[in-house]
Design a protein around this nucleic acid. Sequence first.
DNA 1: CTGAAAGCGCTTACAG
DNA 2: CTGAAAGCGCTTACAG
Lengths: 361, 361
Amino acid sequence: MSEKEPIPPKIYRRTSLKELAAHLGLSQTTVSRVVNQSPGYLRIAPDTRDRVLAAAAKLNYQANVLAQGLRSKRSQIVSVIVPEISDGYSTSVLSGIEDSLLLGGYFYFVVSHRHRPDLLRDYPSLLLSRAVEGLIAVDTSIDEELPIPVVSVSGHSRHGSIVNIELDHTLAAHQALEHLKKLGHSRIAFIKGQSFSSDTQTRWRAIIRVAGELGIEILPKLTVQLEENGIGVEPGRVATMKLLERNEPFTAIFAFNDHSAMGAIVALREAGRDVPNDVSVVGFDDIPSAATNNPGLTTVRQPLQEMGRVAASTLLQMLRSPEEHQRRSILVLPTFVERNSTALAAAVRKTRTPTLIRSGQ
Amino acid sequence: MSEKEPIPPKIYRRTSLKELAAHLGLSQTTVSRVVNQSPGYLRIAPDTRDRVLAAAAKLNYQANVLAQGLRSKRSQIVSVIVPEISDGYSTSVLSGIEDSLLLGGYFYFVVSHRHRPDLLRDYPSLLLSRAVEGLIAVDTSIDEELPIPVVSVSGHSRHGSIVNIELDHTLAAHQALEHLKKLGHSRIAFIKGQSFSSDTQTRWRAIIRVAGELGIEILPKLTVQLEENGIGVEPGRVATMKLLERNEPFTAIFAFNDHSAMGAIVALREAGRDVPNDVSVVGFDDIPSAATNNPGLTTVRQPLQEMGRVAASTLLQMLRSPEEHQRRSILVLPTFVERNSTALAAAVRKTRTPTLIRSGQ
DNA sequence: CTGAAAGCGCTTACAG
DNA sequence: CTGAAAGCGCTTACAG
């Protein structure tokens, strides 16, 4: 007895509805109605209600959600499919998704497909056999019609009933290109996204349109695309090396995302070019490491967490009232974040006073 | 008809066991035995087996896992609880967990407690009412006895039957401190972890022990602790500012983790100190951004993904054979990663030839 | 070698 | 105002 008293184990013995009903001398039906406040709840005698509630609290009754799901056809589970879970983009979205789902009493399975065709093909049925009620696809295009509601974050699905949560890419392109234009850049290089990324096409079209409006030329020789292979900043580094080999002068790069912007900075540094003094670099997304990068990344922020929250609450809404007319797409707005990876173009710098140079964030 | 043909929707109409049995003129029992290869499978007539398998494939039978779980008391779901999902540490572990679980046919719920006491208190019962079979706690200490197997990653739980997956902190401390010692650092500052992090204590004790062995002094004036509030690199930046205010000279910092090491670098830069020429900084974890940080972070790598894989396969093992004696803890080994945030101490540099200076990674 | 029956823990028409 | 009964889609003793 000289040892520390063991903490008395919390009672995790689960009471079933049957036991609770027996304990109260009531039918399961009545008990079920009370604890779930189901239709008919109001017609139950107030003191019966109180007795049930008291006993449920005392015996720590918690419904078996599996059984509820089987019977009522609502598993209270949805699934989120992402390209790769250990990636800043997906997890910011997941964080927002979790916020909304928790409020709605839903749990979620995460699966990552890693661009593997077998997983992309098999996951939908695997998830359906788990009775998930809905699916959120993050940066993943779903090209089959599923028997459950699907919300896509940056997925650009044009299929059936899928609701897309998407960024206003036109505004995003405008913010980035106008920023570079103001700084005096006219020879701007572009790093396009990997072909597997569902944002690649949409964003590129917006860039072309906006560049036209702003009178910015897009030169094929200053355009490279990220390769499918490679992780982290590597694809951006490789793409930028390719760009440098072409010997076509440029003073700025607009990268597809922050990862590739960081890779671009690495490649430029290796080639002896200073960022931002020789070359300005603009990223996209504003993942957490964009701020701590050196130099801090000027970037177009996607409200990833908010996109997750909106995706989840939209999905819950669809589950609650399937019949209601649902918008096909919901637009969210980017925010432009100026840090230290962009500066006045060298040509312009000479003609202006140093105080005009942004001091950064 | 001039539009593109719509893709014929894949058949997602789910066949039930009952339907399949009726279609075959067999009992559910037999069909169940075949599709699950359950005990008794071998006693079934080979051609019955073939007929069942053929029909199951043709009608695309997939069991309803919810119903299976309810009946067999195996939901095939486990849960992972993490402090925060949008954090490089947790997601690397999750990535490994997913690898192992997928192979075992399990899916998982992720929940993040964000150090909120209410969530930490309520999640266990919420998960139990979801019938999860087991729990993996990442960097979270579980101090109640749960009725299901629990594996803890860096949780250091000394409770009941919990299996801990932990890093060899002594080796880790040895790698980092010997590295700094070799570079000629003797005045080393230490950033301790937040009090809520379960690794803080263990790692600090290991550091004290190893420092003693290596003859490295730990000065209270050169020791600071991360504050609980603040996200990303901010706590590390704040701690380092506090350190600098003390006006006690130091030439190196051993930080609790990579985030705080990055924050330290920011604070040092703001104070006009160059990393690594004035101060060397060593991080811990090797999260993805450690490599892309500028300067690249010298750090102690935790094999996070492996830890996740080991945690999940250990849990599955416990679910399969609960009676088997299970080790109380499983040790994994750190790898020391030299990058560019550490260099020879200034005092030493003068006395050696420049070629001795590491060229970095 | 195969099947009838019970039951996992719930919800929900239906009835009174 | 309350309950008996059926049934969600499975698995598993038990029986033959």
